[in-house]
Amino acid sequence: MYEPIRTKSVHTTMARATSDFPHRSREEELDIQLAGHLAALLAVTDELRTLTPSTDLDTAAERLATQVARLRGGRPPLRATATSAAAPTVLHRRAHALAGRALVVAASRADTAAAILAAERMDAHAAAEELSAAH
């Protein structure tokens, strides 16, 4: 009823050829993802620091930069000057979301230091957003 396959499967030849290029482990992929979320959080934190300078934000920025450098094998993150015209409330909301994403990845990676930092930043940005909304 069915005709037998007469040629080699493309999938098997492709599967064998995949060893020609490097693959990353799940751990490496999570490191890259976590470093990306923390770097994005650092960028928003830097924007907030220009709009509303505080020692809390300065300390958070340094801690974030340290974690990103650790995850990237010692390479420090690029720091850009803030150019956003967004309101502090919007930036706090964005930072809260980014910290939440970082927390999820840090938890799945079992990275306690990054998870604690992300949770602290979530709390700080939620409190700042509530304070901004109250005024």
Rank of each mutant, 00 (worst) to 15 (best):
H96C: 05
G73I: 13
L117I: 02
L78M: 10
V105P: 07
S84R: 08
G100Y: 00
H96D: 14
R94T: 13
Q67C: 03
A119F: 05
A114R: 00
R63T: 08
A80F: 14
A110P: 00
L71S: 08
A106R: 01
R109P: 02
R101P: 01
A118Y: 00
R109V: 04
D58R: 10
S84L: 07
R75T: 08
L57F: 15
R109G: 02
A107C: 10
A102N: 10
R63D: 14
A80L: 15
P77F: 00
A99I: 05
A106F: 06
H92L: 10
P76Y: 00
L57M: 13
L78A: 05
A80E: 15
A119G: 11
E62P: 04
T81A: 15
R93G: 13
A97W: 05
R72A: 04
A113C: 11
L117V: 02
A61D: 11
T59D: 10
R121S: 10
A65D: 04
P88C: 03
D58T: 15
A97V: 12
A69N: 04
H92Q: 12
G100V: 06
V104W: 03
R94G: 00
E120M: 11
V90P: 06
V90C: 01
A99G: 11
A99H: 13
H92G: 01
L71W: 02
R63N: 12
T81Y: 04
R101D: 15
A69M: 02
A82T: 08
A65R: 05
A99V: 05
A65W: 02
A118T: 02
T112S: 15
T83G: 14
L78Q: 03
R79D: 03
L78H: 05
T89D: 12
A60S: 12
P76V: 09
G74C: 03
T89S: 14
A99N: 09
A118I: 01
A80Y: 14
G100H: 11
V104K: 06
R93H: 14
A114P: 14
S108V: 11
R93L: 08
T66R: 04
L71N: 04
A102S: 05
R121D: 06
P88Y: 08
L103W: 07
A86S: 09
V104Q: 13
A113I: 11
R72W: 03
L57H: 10
D111V: 11
R70G: 07
A61V: 09
R93F: 01
A82H: 05
R101V: 00
A106D: 00
G73K: 02
A102E: 02
R93A: 14
A95G: 08
R121M: 15
R70M: 02
A86Y: 01
V90T: 15
T112D: 12
D58H: 09
T83C: 06
L91S: 03
R72S: 15
R75F: 01
V105A: 06
T81M: 10
L117W: 00
E62T: 09
A82Y: 11
L98D: 11
A82L: 04
R72E: 12
S108G: 15
T66N: 09
